[in-house]
């Protein structure tokens, strides 16, 4: 009755709401945890202590060099056709503007194709992208590549409609990538509301002028750590089931949803198993990644350090898509492994979370999955996720303690059972 015991403890027993309460204590104490910041450093120290005090084994920190970017003061003021102070958030890694800012006319486009067609108009202007929101993983291209594409046609800066499924005048930040040989121009996200308004103004033939000021700076890489804890396996201690979430966040809100929830249900999975006095046959390893938001920097370093042991990894698990009510598990692996995962998920019938979907993975486990290790990620109710993602709204208020408890139960049952099976998951 192991699965039932885990579910009872996590959802109905004394551990109910625990992952939520633990997360609230951390994020209320240190706030958001940007790569390279003092608050991320403090969060790692606190988590190291927490995991030790929880009685987990082999608690240690693995060093990683991570990007250090700070946004500084920033503002965007529309000067024509009327004065309007706009909300904005600079994008990770962006260069700043000169101290006096950049004052320029605006060119509004709705796609990269339109930018190409109107390339001669872009020179010396601020390009505003008002791309429609389709699905996140497509629309996010505008945030990532917007500055490069605008710079290629001679723009001075780019302002991108936030990649958000819903907006109450909320700018959403995120990472962007410059390209070698293309001038680095300042880039930021503005609100859906302002992007749409400027699009309407431009379509009426109005001249739009914006003064953009960004104090963003890039510093030398900072020292950081992936945080690791284990329950060492009883029979095959060298073999591993890895459960994970990332501890860093953007510098807005509290980073509670992205990815505090994922990190804390991963810790909770080990806590639940330990509290029940269980010890699986192979090692359950918790990894709290650093600098995921900058492109999986900590995860890449971990892969480089540990890939020699790849044959001993049975399953890698990552939760980085919210910890709302789970729908099931996304899984990548062989047909045989998928059939086994379906049986494992059948154990979650009491909480009705039994489905196995395709495309398990995520930024922090993709290196392992691409190399052939079975990978699983939590699939949950994403209805609210991209409304709050990378914005000031990512706080504990959006989290739900009961939903987190259910997610933790799923995470614990799957990781424990796979770690305790007599054989590793078969690969293709």
């Amino acid at each position: 009755d192991v699965a039932k015991a885990i579910i009872d403890l996590a959802v109905y027993g004394k551990a109910q709401n625990r992952s939520y309460e633990r997360l609230a204590l951390l994020v209320d104490t240190v706030g958001p945890r940007l790569s390279g910041s003092k608050s991320l450093e403090k969060a790692i120290q606190i988590m190291y202590q927490n995991l030790k005090e929880d009685g987990l084994e082999n608690v240690h920190l693995e060093p990683v060099k991570i990007p250090h970017w700070e946004r500084g003061e920033e503002s965007a003021v529309m000067l024509e056709p009327r004065v309007h102070r706009m909300a904005l958030l600079g994008l990770g890694g962006s260069v700043g503007t000169p101290p006096q800012g950049i004052t320029a006319e605006v060119l509004v486009v709705t796609s990269f194709d339109e930018l190409q067609r109107r390339a001669p108009e872009a020179k010396g202007k601020i390009v505003v992208y008002n791309q429609p929101y389709a699905i996140y993983f497509k629309t996010v291209e505008y945030r990532v590549r917007g500055a490069v594409e605008a710079a290629k046609v001679g723009a001075l800066a780019s302002l991108i409609r936030s990649v958000a499924s819903f907006s109450i005048y909320s700018p959403h930040t995120g990472v962007q990538e410059y390209q070698d040989g293309v001038p680095k121009i300042p880039t930021a996200c503005i609100t859906v509301e302002d992007a749409e308004m400027m699009s309407r103004m431009a379509s009426r033939g109005s001249r739009i002028v914006i003064q953009l000021k960004m104090g963003a700076k890039n510093y030398a890489d900072a020292d950081s750590f992936n945080t690791v804890a284990e329950i060492i396996g009883s029979k095959y201690p060298e073999q591993v089931v890895l459960v994970s979430g990332h501890l860093d966040s953007w510098d807005v809100g509290q980073g509670a949803m992205d990815d505090g929830g994922g990190a804390f249900i991963s810790w909770e999975a080990l806590s639940l198993i330990k509290d029940l006095g269980l010890r699986p046959k192979r090692t359950l390893r918790l990894v709290l990644w650093t600098a995921e938001e900058q492109g999986g920097i900590g995860a890449f370093q971990y892969y480089q350090s540990h890939k020699a042991n790849i044959s001993n990894y049975s399953l890698v698990m990552e939760s980085d898509g919210g910890t709302f009510l789970p729908y099931g598990l996304q899984f990548t692996g062989s047909d045989k492994a998928r059939a086994i995962m379906k049986e494992v998920m059948g154990l979650l019938q009491p909480i009705n979370v039994t489905r196995v979907f395709s495309d398990g993975g995520g930024t922090d486990i993709k290196f392992w999955v691409q190399a052939g290790v079975p990978g699983a990620s939590l699939l949950d109710d994403l209805y609210k996720y991209f409304s709050f993602h990378h914005s000031q709204g990512d706080t504990m208020t959006v989290m739900d303690p009961k939903e987190m408890s259910v997610a933790a139960a799923v995470w614990a049952v799957v990781s424990y059972v796979v770690a305790d099976l007599e054989e590793m998951l078969p690969r293709s």
Binding site: A3, G346, L347, A371, V413, V417, D420, L421, M424
Partner: peptide, 24 residues
């Protein structure tokens, strides 16, 4: 370089299924 583990399962799917059911 990534090292792959050979697929060395000694058990049938039915046996694994029974093993998993045991955790229920």
């Amino acid at each position: 370089k990534a090292i792959y583990r050979n697929d060395t399962s000694q058990r049938t799917f039915e046996e694994i299924k029974e093993e998993i059911a045991h955790y229920g």
